[in-house]
């Protein structure tokens, strides 16, 4: 017998801890910390451009630092959103197939969203 309190049946069914909770917790905090800096940067940039036209907005995002930070902001934002929505689904959606479907859809959409933003910024920064 192992020193685990779990029964062999529970073990073979894969019940119990997935051993990945701490990783999720830590990534959620790390992305939160990054967004603490990138979020206000995004708000200030957006407010500065709120009265600007296409040309000025395009020129601003074409600058290397702004392009870099925008890609970082959108990537981390979608990562953080996926981590948060994952917990919401885990807590409130109790129909197994529906919960799993939602988790997959959310992950796919988050990756698509981050890629779309990165491609858009690259096109702006590197010229179309």
């Amino acid at each position: 017998m192992s020193d685990s309190m779990r029964t062999p049946l529970a073990r073979v069914r894969g019940l119990g801890s997935a051993q990945s909770g701490a990783g999720h917790w830590w990534r959620q905090r790390l992305t939160a910390l990054a967004l603490l800096v990138l979020g206000p940067w995004f708000v200030v940039l957006t407010l500065g451009l709120s009265h600007a036209g296409y040309a000025e907005a395009h020129a601003t995002l074409a600058q290397p630092l702004d392009a870099l930070l925008m890609i970082a902001f959108t990537a981390v934002m979608f990562w953080h959103a996926q981590l948060g929505l994952q917990v919401v689904v885990e807590d409130y959606v109790h129909t197994r197939w529906f919960a799993l479907t939602l988790q997959i859809v959310i992950k796919f959409l988050a990756v698509l969203g981050a890629l779309a933003c990165a491609l858009a910024v690259l096109r702006i920064a590197l010229g179309s």
């Binding site: 907005a57 959108t74 969203g113 491609l119 179309s128």
Partner: peptide, 11 residues
């Protein structure tokens, strides 16, 4: 999604 829309239309 609004951020995505803003960046895509700007591009």
């Amino acid at each position: 999604l609004l951020v995505v829309a803003g960046l895509l239309t700007l591009a």
